[in-house]
């Protein structure tokens, strides 16, 4: 599936005023964050994208793909839908073993059956780079931890669905390796849209869409200063997770933990 870009045409804020930002173009390869306080309309914005809103949702926004209204086929044929959405409530309900589940899904998406094994192996290795404890193919889907579940959701959407657009709603809370996730995701030429409160993800994005009162109020491109600073932010974040691990394993913390943060 070849898509070059998607366009968000602005609608109305919650109070009924025209949205300050009336057009955003996202190009293949862009990694974008949506930021804003709770209730500012972040989830609503990605729902608009996933639905290909056509001025028929509460926001009045319109979504274009390659400058045109997306074809109806996207709604009719699951294998042609260009969007994968991972919501805050998204989970796996299936209690199949991981391997059976992935192969069921891979069979639907694979262009020919010789690819299936590789798809499963790639999904698993992708997911296992994001979690602390590796996922085992024979464990049941419902036995996976929160972090493992998120990691597998992201890996499945990226590798098996292989959709050109992936939407992720607040994935940071699940304890996955975020820098690694962004590195891996950047190897795939897709549009990734993160709803996030996480400075690390925000600074590793190309730009961030700022929400307030139900509307898009501005676009901030990550500048050189922020890009430089993101290295330190990541370092600080790693230190915090190292401290979390120490606490978890019953160790004491000392003032040395923050050494190296020049």
């Amino acid at each position: 599936m070849f898509i070059k870009n998607i366009t968000i045409l602005g609608g109305m804020s919650r109070s009924g005023n025209p949205e300050p930002v009336q057009r955003i173009d996202l190009n293949m390869g862009d990694v974008v964050s949506i930021v804003g306080p709770t209730g500012s309309g972040k989830t609503t914005l990605i729902n608009d994208i996933e639905l290909f809103a056509d001025r028929n949702t509460q926001t009045g926004r319109c979504i274009l793909i390659d400058g045109k209204r997306p074809p109806l086929e996207y709604r009719d044929n699951p294998a042609s839908n260009p969007i994968a959405l991972i919501t805050q409530h998204t989970t796996f309900l299936s209690d199949l073993p991981v391997e059976d589940f992935l192969s069921t899904h891979a069979r639907i998406r694979a262009k020919d059956s010789s690819q299936i094994e590789a798809m499963i192996a790639n999904t698993l290795s992708f997911a296992n780079q994001l979690t602390g404890e590796p996922i085992i193919l024979s464990s049941r889907m419902t036995e996976l931890s929160g972090g493992q579940t998120r990691a597998l959701l992201i890996a499945d959407a990226t590798v098996i669905c292989d959709t050109p657009i992936v939407l992720l709603d607040e994935v940071e809370n699940a304890g996955i390796h975020r820098t690694r996730a962004l590195e891996l995701l950047r190897q795939h030429r897709k549009i990734f849209i993160f709803v996030t409160h996480d400075p690390r993800i925000a600074l590793l994005s190309d730009f961030r869409i700022v929400m307030q009162g139900g509307s898009i109020v501005k676009i901030l491109h990550t500048n050189d200063e922020e890009r430089q600073f993101s290295i330190k932010v990541s370092k600080l974040d790693d230190m915090l997770s190292a401290m979390r691990d120490k606490i978890r394993f019953g160790e004491r913390l000392t003032t040395h933990e923050l050494e190296g943060l020049a």
């Binding site: 699951p78 994968a84 998204t90 796996f92 069921t104 959407a157 669905c161």
Partner: peptide, 11 residues
Amino acid sequence: IDRVSQAEREV
């Protein structure tokens, strides 16, 4: 559809 993974939706 808001409650389940893309994979399960497709299956």
